Computed example of a mutant assay.
Amino acid sequence: MRALQKTLIFIFLIAAQFVVAQSGKIVVSKEQAIKKGIYSPPSTENAIASIETPKPEKEKKQSIKPKQKKDKNNILVTKNDDDIIILNENDSYIAEQLIYNASYNLGIKYRSGGTTREGFDCSGLMYSTFKKFDITLPRSSYEMALIGRKVEPSEYKKGDLIFFRTFGGSRISHVGMITEVNGDEVKFIHSSTQLGVIVSSLKEPYYLRTFAQVNRVLE
């Protein structure tokens, strides 16, 4: 029994010496590691170099292709939504374009001597509208009535100029452009002193009473 106790005591002493001997090598903090020479902080350059900077992705070029429509038979449709469609073979494309451009000014106020969207007088509206298509009209309604040729009611067409004597007498004092001929009704766009750019009908009593003539400047 005593021999066993002596053996255990001997083993315990040996183990304690081993722990003491080894305890000098245990590192419990960064400061101790630096003192023992087994640790050195990384340099700033190395730290920065070790970080991989992500390369920017190349921008993908987007090719914009016009939208293409196909009909039920898979045939490409070339018509655009803003195309002007000629429904009557007697109507001219240029006349439709003139009406389209003049109509863009609907609601613009009347302005004596005006030829812009800041305001139009009657001849100013016609002058600026035709000028967009390199057709230079005289500046006054009276002079406009002297160009082209007079046409009879059966010949009235879109794009014809329609004239009025709004001051009485024989002198032309107002002009518009025919936008629609529907049977015996004629509609025209013009700039009125009261309402600005509007579409009126020749059936209206005032315009029927002051009507003078219709001239064709587009043949």
Rank of each mutant, 00 (worst) to 15 (best):
I85Y: 00
S92T: 14
N74G: 07
N101E: 10
N101S: 15
I86A: 02
K70D: 03
K65S: 15
E89P: 04
I84V: 03
Q68E: 10
I85H: 00
D81S: 13
S92W: 09
N73T: 10
E89W: 05
Y100A: 12
D81Q: 12
A102M: 00
L76N: 09
K70T: 09
D81E: 14
I85N: 02
S63P: 10
L98A: 04
Y100K: 00
D82A: 05
Q68S: 15
I99F: 05
I84L: 06
K70M: 15
I64P: 09
K67L: 10
E96H: 01
A102S: 01
D82Y: 01
D82F: 03
L98W: 04
N73R: 04
D81R: 15
I64F: 03
L98G: 00
Q68W: 07
N74K: 14
A95N: 05
N88W: 07
A95C: 05
N101F: 08
Y93F: 13
Q97T: 05
L76T: 14
P66G: 13
I94G: 03
I75F: 09
I84S: 04
E96C: 06
K67A: 02
E96W: 04
D83P: 07
L98N: 04
I64A: 02
V77C: 02
N80K: 07
L87P: 07
K72C: 04
N90H: 02
Q97G: 07
Q68Y: 06
I94H: 01
Q97Y: 11
A102L: 00
N90S: 05
K79S: 15
A102T: 01
N88E: 07
K65L: 12
I75C: 09
Q68T: 10
I85D: 08
K72P: 04
Y93H: 12
I84N: 01
I99A: 01
Q97F: 11
I86L: 05
K65G: 14
K65Y: 15
K72Y: 14
K67F: 01
L76H: 14
S63Q: 10
D81K: 09
K70F: 15
N73G: 08
L76P: 11
K67N: 08
S92R: 15
T78I: 10
N90W: 06
L98I: 07
I86G: 03
I84Q: 04
